[in-house]
Design a protein around this nucleic acid. Sequence first.
DNA 1: ATTTGTAGTTACTCGATGGTAACCAGAATA
DNA 2: TATTCTGGTTACCATCGAGTAACTACAAAT
Lengths: 125, 125
Amino acid sequence: MRDEKFCASNCSFTRAIGTVGNKWKPIILNVIGTRTIRFGQLDSIVPLISRKVLTEQLKELEEDGLLERLAYKELPPRVEYKLSEKGLAFLPILESIKEWNIKYEVAPMPGEADKKFRINYARTV
Amino acid sequence: MRDEKFCASNCSFTRAIGTVGNKWKPIILNVIGTRTIRFGQLDSIVPLISRKVLTEQLKELEEDGLLERLAYKELPPRVEYKLSEKGLAFLPILESIKEWNIKYEVAPMPGEADKKFRINYARTV
DNA sequence: ATTTGTAGTTACTCGATGGTAACCAGAATA
DNA sequence: TATTCTGGTTACCATCGAGTAACTACAAAT
């Protein structure tokens, strides 16, 4: 899910998009936020994600230094995830995306195409 | 390339990621910036994108209200794109992603795995 | 002795994604 | 007359992404 061509670009912005510019990573980072969370919790909180994809995304986020993984040598296993300094520094960006969408999102009313009748569902969180 | 399930979510943030959370849209928005630009220019400036995908992305950005498309009835045709108010309001977010990456990106040196020898290529733009 | 629980991994499969090349209009140019 | 120019669209095909189900380890509980 990381874009290797983008990550190999000589443009810093393109590399950034290559690492976090997919649909799952912003969602996962936002769900984790400032807390420490276990794999199973993430699996049940993040909507519609499969274990396989979640595992992949978490591994990449760790490799890219946004996430810290702490595995306890217990049985049954326990693994905790939390954002690194780099990951925490990304949270304000997610916040500004939220604010941007709340301000500008316009949803069409069901069955009504005319723009005059469009309403703003932005506050629906 | 838009994620329809995300766009149908009742969470504003998830919907936002559903519309701009892919690899091409941030790149395209960043390339356009504050200027007016023609299709052919975008096709040659945006690295590695195909006409087909570029067309799709531009269409979605227009549908989502980030982009304005102005087609002149000439032959050969001329079409100009520029960001809408909503699109322009997204640019500061892209800027903060750039700054974030410049501050935190760490690239491994080729052939050297030891973290002690990693250097920061962040200023390479 | 069997089930439960966690955090994954693996193999298999199907649908979506994305690239390529060909094609379009119709005026201007050679 | 043939070619060029622009901004696409279409069909075709290979690749990729992602979902599902089964499987792992081992301790504790039933």
